[in-house]
Amino acid sequence: MEASSTVRIPTPLRTLTAGNDEVKAAGATVAAVIDDLEKNYPGIKDRLLDEKGVRRFVNIYVGEEDIRFLEGLKTELKGGEQITIVPAIAGGC
């Protein structure tokens, strides 16, 4: 059985997850989890990644740690981790 993680989805992406703020996804690395998310929620991968990796304004955390300070998309998952997608910010001008 492949490792399964919980992924917290920020408000702007919940249109893709039928309004769910938390979804399950399988994969042994963060990259595999995102591929699994894409299968169930088409379009989400492009919102998070570009050809160079995680888009500059998107932050992905495994537990309390930003994956930029771990192994990036290759960060390994044992299963049971909480992955959080944190938007850069929104506000008013």
């Binding site: 920020p10 408000t11 702007p12 992406l13 249109t15 919102r47 888009r55 500059r56 304004f57 998107v58 938007p87 850069a88 910010i89 929104a90 506000g91 008013g92 001008c93």
Partner: peptide
Amino acid sequence: TEALHGLEGLKHLPSSLVP
């Protein structure tokens, strides 16, 4: 262009509370 963006201060109206 997108709901999830990094242009701090700007609003993507189609996915936001409209002021």
